[in-house]
Every structure is written in C-alpha cells, then in structure tokens.
Design a protein around this nucleic acid. Sequence first.
RNA 1: GUGGCCGUAGCUCAAUGGUAGAGCUCCAGAUUGUGGUUCUGGCUGUUGCGGGUUCGAGUCCCGUCGGCCACCCCA
Length: 410
Amino acid sequence: MQPLPGFRDFLPTDCAKRNYIFASWREVARRYGFVEWDGPVLEPTDLYRKKSGPEIVGQLFNFTDKGEREVAMRPELTPTLARVVAAHDREFKKPLKWFSIPQCFRYEKQQRGRLREHFQLNCDIIGEASADADVELIALAIDLLRAFGFTSSDVVVRLSDRGFWGDFLRVRNVPEERWSELLQIIDKSEREPRDKTAERLGSLATDVFQTLDSGGTSERLDQVVAGLQARGLAEFASVDVRIVRGLAYYSGIVFEVFDRGGKLRAIAGGGRYDHLIAQLSDDACDLPAAGFAMGDVVLGELIDATPAVRDRMHARMTAAYEIEIFVVVAKEERRSEAVKQAQLLRDRGKRVDYSLGAAKVGKQFQMAEQLGARTAVLFGDEWPNVAVKDLASGKQELVPHERLLEHVAR
RNA sequence: GUGGCCGUAGCUCAAUGGUAGAGCUCCAGAUUGUGGUUCUGGCUGUUGCGGGUUCGAGUCCCGUCGGCCACCCCA
C-alpha cells in the first residue's frame, strides 16, 4: 500500500523539517504583527467556481458528499479568506493582518515541486489600499526567507504591476475582454519562443516587446522599490513587468519569488486583489486587499539545495529533537531506581530516554550515541551512587543518586 | 488530460534473452558493565502488476499502475 499519488507520508525526519519550516514562518509572521487564523479544508465547489469560473473544477479535488453537496478540498485559501472577512467585517479594526498555514489540494498530475497536496503560508493585509501594505508584504516575504538563512544571492523577488499593463492596454484601446488573455501571453513570453509570442500578440507585439526590453515601471512600483530600499532589502528585489501572474483577480502590484539559479518553480507569489472581496461577497463588503502565499514543497527543495541553509536547518532540528540524557540500566535490579530518576529529569524538562527492555550495556551506549545524547547515567553496582558519563569527552564520575538532578539538570 | 523516459532487497544500484547480485541499512554475535571503528553470521525479492512472444524473459511486445520530464494549468 502506498499513499495516493501526489500525497506524502511524513516520516519523523520529514515531520521535523515541516515543523521547522512552520515554526520559522510563524515566528516571522508574528514579528510583523500578523495573527494566525484558519478555515475549513472542505468548501462548497461554488466558492471556487464563483471566483475562477467553471473551468477551475477540472483542477479541483472535488466530490459530492453524502448530503448531495458538491464540495472541494481547498485549492487555495484566498476565497475562504474573502468569505470570512466579508462575514466578520465589522468585528475587526482595519487593516487586518492575517496569516495561515493551510494544507491545499489540487487534482493534477504531479511533478517535482508540485504535488496534489501541499502546505502554504498565506499572509494577507485587508483594508489598506496604500503601497505601504504592498511593501510590508514583500518585506515580510523576504524576511521569511532570510529567517532560513537565504541571502540575496539565493533568492530574488520579481516585482510587477498589473496597473502598468492596464494603462498600456487602455492607451492602445484594447477592449478589457482581451486583457486577461493578453496578460497570460505576456506572462508566458519568457518560456516560449519570441516568434510564437509575437504571433499570439498580433498587432501589439512590437509595443509589448519594446516595453519588455526597455523595462516598464509605474508610480506604484517606484513606491514599492523606495520602500524596500528604506528597509535595506532592495538587493532582494528587481522590477520585472513580465511577471503578471495567472490569476485574473490581481489588480495592482504582483510579485513572485524565485531561486537565483532559476532551477525551481516559484517559491512564493502574490499581489494586490482589491476587488475580490466585493466580488465574492456580492458587494456586501468591499475592502482593498493584498497577500501572498509561500509553499512548503519548493521551499523545502531550495533549502536542501542550499548547503548553508540546509546545515542551519539540521542544526536547529538536532537542537530541538536530540535526546539529552540517556539512562543506562547496567543492572536490571536497578531498573526501577533508574526509571524514577529518568522521570525526575523529565519533570525538569530534560529529554531523557532509556532502553525499554533488558539490553547489554554496550548496546545501551550505542543507543545513547545514536539518539545524540550528551550524557549517559549508569545505574548498577555503584548504587546508591550513579555513574555520570560525558559522552563527548568520555569522562565519567560517580555521583550520589540524590544529587543527580542538580548535577545534570542545571 | 496529452506526449517522452523510467520501474530489480528497506535505500543506492548491478546482471551479452540462459540458475537474480553487491554496497549501505537493519538484526544477532566477537566470554563478566562502557560508544558511530573492525570482524563474523543472518533477514528481506511473485524483478511494480497482468497478459503475450520464446525451449527459456529482469531483459523483447501489449496493457495497467506508479515515478520523472515537457505540455496544459497554475493557488
């Protein structure tokens, strides 16, 4: 029996890595004053249909429940956020700064960096229309990565502005119905041959290429760049109007984070979506909003591919999980005294382990070694003394068992 | 969903169409109560699964499932 395609088992090492990532995310998000929330894993399929149109259903992990309801495992959190915010609009002061770590699902053939299930950190600011919110989010995205040890030579935030392209298309009298199609072509332009892109752009091709080659900009982008400079984070960002993001609901600044090597998919992405909450709430609530998401899969791959970052993670995982004291039951008749002392040490918050069954002393030392213990305490012929051994130095000393706590639990 | 490549022990991989192997891991020993080294021994396979060709298939063919890659799509 295997897990379903695209779903993961988390063995202890994987779980430790996941916990490390989540802990870093939470710590940095809180540093920025964000509070954690969550919503249901299962939502009515209509919630996503309403936001993205009927074609989204093909990508959903959806089914009909026993009450004949059409439901879907959430593919993303933003529609839920819009629903929740609209429903509780008056209960919170604005702006809202909320984050969440949902597990999200999609029904698609899996590839590297893209499974049918993943966790993604979502950070959103609701109710603030100024560029300050955009900058704050991008700075947060950068700091989230800095917390893992990534530097500006590892990752880059590519900044763009949907508004820039809106002006571009409006000036050229392109009907709004065609905007989303054209934006998708631009989004894809760096991944396909230029002549193919030109063919799909038609009469706009010359203007678009000229803009891409010269590099576009906008007032908003200038504000964002200035804001990042003020924070000392500008080296992490570069303006690149080729980024438009696939989602139709983005309305202003958009950005994606990539590894500098360009080997992996986007690590994170987001932007401003000022009209989505109104759209999803049938205008019951209208709040400007912006946010981004960072997935655990691509991030995990980049951590593993970046030696300094990977070593840092291993060091943190070791510090958090390794056994500190191993109790060696050298004589089985001393087992109950040994367990009693182990319990007292655990009460002090120490990570303590011992062999559950009778085992040779050499075997028990091997266990201590493998568990990463720094100290071994022998219970045997020395009783009522115990032998305390520092496993790194090999030095061993006798200590009266009543004084074991003060000796090792300092 | 479409196409290409791949699938051998828990892991990494061998095996001109001719009896399925190695390393690592794991387990047990190397005389009394002290460590990741060393030595010895041991376990695990319906070669993903099901058909077919052949005297004979891990090897060739078809299907299927799973994985990787590209497309599609991108939260």
